[in-house]
Design a protein around this nucleic acid. Structure first.
Lengths: 153, 153
DNA sequence: GGTGAAACTATACATTG
DNA sequence: CAATGTATAGTTTCACC
């Protein structure tokens, strides 16, 4: 896999904003013909630089009004115990993100649910029922100021 | 804007996984003809339920090896002061997310940069130079266990 | 709400320079 | 990388159920 040049970076910039841009439209933005653009996009896809194309949904328009960051400390830190936790947590559809973090907690997960009732049920019935959970600490999102999917390339 | 029925929800489920699905492909998955699918997708777009379609980039393949959650406490909590902070923080391209949160900090931001050197420079030159920053606390992501863009609809 | 066909438009990809 | 050509596939509309 070769390094990205400035044309690749421009392509990524545009596709991170709009996945429905056609080769033609991209080409005209880059002052190129469609041919090289087509080849570069395919290369970026094959190399896995572009992982996938997705639709971004308005969370509140589908009634997911509550977002919570939940910090989790495990009881046991043995490799096996951690692996087990990870296997289980990724299965939960309410868990959008899970990160292994530095600091006083082991993991931070981002949870999206309809409302507080559902979050409570998530905590009590799903999270707490996993083995090896030591303690949790929930931080509630009061308002979303910025939420991008895009990186500066 | 009408409520979503189960067909809408199925469409959203598929498009959240792959924005490049065509009307035809969606239709065959839903056992429908292209026409209603086409109309529903357009309605979902117009209603803003589908905000946009984006390419998802592999963060590490473009050298963004460091992700940090940075908790921020403001000095002044007057509405004006908070507004000013928000206006400035959203401009920073390293800041992928910014949430107004409950608890001992006012905001949590998600920052993506190349390496620790760049993060240090971000903290010192960009974040600290905003007015009204009281204190910050960085939590480093050691490994990304799950990172979805998708909600269960 | 849905079907199915028809018309139109755009795209992907190969070829040649 | 440009330009062109063409097979193929997509979008969109319409008449009808």
């Amino acid at each position: 896999m070769q390094k990205l040049d400035s044309t690749d970076r421009e392509i990524l910039k545009y596709l991170q904003e709009n996945a429905h841009l056609t080769t033609k439209e991209l080409a005209s933005r880059l002052n190129l013909s469609p041919t090289p653009v087509y080849e570069r996009v395919r290369r970026l896809e094959n190399d896995g630089v572009i992982k996938k194309y997705v639709a971004v949904i308005d969370r509140e328009k589908i009634g997911k009004d509550l977002m919570v960051f939940c910090n989790i400390r495990l009881k046991e830190h043995a490799q096996e115990a951690g692996k087990k936790f990870v296997e289980e947590i990724v299965k939960l559809t309410e868990v959008i993100e899970c990160h292994n973090i530095s600091g006083e907690y082991d993991f931070m997960i981002k949870v999206v649910v309809d409302d507080m009732r559902e979050y409570q049920s998530f905590l009590m019935n799903k999270l707490a029922s996993l083995e090896n959970i030591g303690s949790t600490h929930s931080i509630f999102v009061m308002s979303e100021v910025k939420n991008e999917t895009k990186f500066e390339v």
